[in-house]
Simulated scan of single mutants.
Amino acid sequence: MLSPTDPINHALFYKQRFKSFNFTMYNTISKQGDCFIWPETEGKRGSCEIASCLYLYFKSTPAVVNHILYFSDRYRGQKLNKFVAAMCLIAVQLLPHLETTDLKCMVVGPNEMERDSMHSAISTEHKIIGKVNWSANWMTIARCDRKKGDKPSTVDEITNKQIIDWKSHQKCHMTFRKADVHGQSINWLYFSKKTQFVINCK
């Protein structure tokens, strides 16, 4: 997401603009969308930022939630990598209410998930408003992106203090391979308190 934007001022297209990043989660049970937004001054668009947003989401779940099933695309640069796996491995050990997490990855090719509707709604709301002056304006747009009758999206502003260096955690605590012990590719990861610091895969 870029700022400023102005549909009338076409000269902005040729200018270097300020970037903001948005990581979205959609709860298919509660029909609640969550947006984690941060400007480029607070962090990049990398795996540590994505893993930190996931960890914050896991922490925010109610105490009655002991199992999280999470679907992801196969973008290895951000989501399907050893750093996100390290976060899940540590999260099930540190968070008292979380017993297990499933990380399932979509098959290669065109796909669509519920969270894509959130990006579409944000884009539609942006077209209605038209003008964005600063990064904080994107947070307002994200809060107003849902249709009438739907729950408004929860928007969390991420700072660099909330971004954890999961790469260092991975190097210290685990060895991650692209294939399982049988040499098969990994499409599904399962983390449990009962099997401490073990990644189960399918």
Rank of each mutant, 00 (worst) to 15 (best):
F58Q: 00
K59G: 08
A63G: 07
V64R: 04
V64C: 11
V65Y: 00
V65S: 01
N66W: 09
N66H: 11
N66K: 05
N66Q: 02
H67P: 00
I68M: 07
I68R: 08
F71Y: 13
F71K: 06
F71V: 10
D73R: 01
R74Y: 11
R74A: 14
Y75I: 04
R76P: 05
R76A: 13
R76M: 12
G77A: 07
G77M: 04
K79E: 08
L80P: 08
N81A: 03
F83L: 01
F83S: 03
C88N: 10
I90A: 12
I90H: 14
V92T: 02
V92L: 05
Q93A: 12
L94N: 15
L94I: 12
L94F: 07
L95H: 12
P96C: 09
H97P: 07
E99S: 05
E99M: 11
E99F: 10
T101A: 12
D102H: 08
D102I: 02
D102A: 00
L103G: 06
L103H: 00
L103Y: 03
L103S: 11
K104A: 15
K104S: 04
M106L: 10
V107M: 08
V108R: 03
G109L: 05
G109W: 11
P110Q: 07
P110N: 06
N111C: 10
N111M: 06
E112I: 13
M113P: 01
E114R: 02
R115S: 11
D116Y: 09
D116A: 03
M118S: 06
M118Y: 09
H119R: 01
H119Q: 04
S120M: 10
S120Y: 05
I122Y: 12
I122H: 07
S123K: 15
T124R: 15
T124A: 15
T124L: 14
E125G: 00
E125V: 06
E125R: 15
H126F: 15
K127V: 14
K127Q: 15
I128L: 13
I128D: 14
I129S: 04
I129K: 15
K131M: 09
